[in-house]
Simulated assay, not measured.
Amino acid sequence: MATSTKNLTYRLGGQLEINRLGYGAMQLTGTGVFGEVADRENAKKVLQAAVAGGVNFIDTAEAYGPKLNETLIADALHPYQKGVVIATKGGFQRPGPNKWVPDGRPEFIRENIEGSLQRLKVDTIDLWQLHRFDPKVPVEETLAPVADAVKAGKIRYVGLSEVDVAQIERAQKVLPIVSVQNLYNLGNRQWEEVLDYTTQHNLAFIPWFPLASGPDTLAEKISKIAEKYNATTAQIALAWLLQRADNILLIPGTKSIQHLEENLKAADIELTEEEFEQLSR
């Protein structure tokens, strides 16, 4: 069922008001999300253009680069404009391009948090997310240093990534959870149950790969609707997500200022109930 897109802001944790169309910085890295981005000056301009365009929610991670993406964000945006929320993540080792190894050891998590604070040049991380549960380490142990960081004022809010409902509830026994970041888009809705759970329990839902890393794969299904709105398939895919649930926060990423501006215009598109249902089938 679609919700109205009239409210394009969301209060994270019930307090931090953020625009629901944010920016995901993962693409501002080298090949395989590893190493420095090819054109660093352009990457800085994209980040600056995002904030100038009204984005006040930027998603990054210790694992992007690794570490280099957080440094890039600070170089481009620090001192941060009032109201800008930087979300980061921890819990992945990066032995090489396209290689991701969960590491939930408390000492590694503690190191991630301290490193993120330094690289982002902040005293408090607005939203710190556990990138993945490590099957080798009980999540209670993984989250212990996170709870310590919250008590110490180093982390304001905590989120999870790529989790099911049982994992959310298990983590919530350790500390409050305000957001879930799972793979979700118009073409891949395997986490529908989790999205519904977050909606019912007032948690933010942050779809990663909101465009399925290339919405042209959905072009046949949505081309007629896109034509009606004089929009791109990407804009329709984002508009659909904004209407799917009002706790969805979008973080499409791009290395292009033109694509960034196109993505932000998706907030202006309001699909009819019939169009929404047609795309949902």
Rank of each mutant, 00 (worst) to 15 (best):
A2G: 07
Y10D: 11
R11T: 14
G14C: 11
G14A: 11
L16Y: 04
E17H: 05
I18G: 13
R20C: 11
G22N: 08
A25Y: 06
L28H: 14
G32N: 05
G32V: 04
R40I: 13
R40P: 08
K44V: 09
V46D: 05
A50N: 14
V51I: 06
I58R: 00
I58N: 00
T71D: 11
A74W: 04
D75V: 08
D75A: 12
H78A: 13
P79V: 04
Q81W: 04
G83Q: 06
K89E: 09
G90D: 01
G91Y: 09
P95W: 07
G96I: 09
N98D: 10
D103V: 00
D103G: 03
D103L: 03
D103P: 02
R105H: 07
E107K: 06
F108V: 15
R110E: 12
N112Q: 07
I113W: 04
S116K: 01
K121Y: 05
V122Q: 06
D134E: 06
D134R: 03
P145A: 07
V146I: 06
A147N: 15
A147Y: 12
K154N: 01
V158C: 11
G159F: 03
V165M: 15
I177C: 11
I177A: 08
V178W: 07
V178M: 03
V180M: 11
Q181P: 07
N182S: 12
N185Y: 00
L186H: 03
G187H: 01
G187T: 03
G187I: 00
Q190R: 15
Q190A: 15
Q190S: 14
L195G: 09
T199K: 15
Q200G: 09
H201M: 11
H201D: 12
N202P: 08
N202Y: 04
L203K: 05
G214P: 02
A219P: 12
E220Y: 07
I222K: 12
K224V: 00
K228V: 09
A231L: 14
I236N: 14
I236T: 09
Q243S: 02
A245M: 10
A245L: 09
I248A: 15
I248P: 15
L249Y: 02
K255E: 09
Q258W: 12
L260E: 14
E261G: 10
A266L: 06
A267M: 07
L271D: 13
E275T: 02
R281A: 14
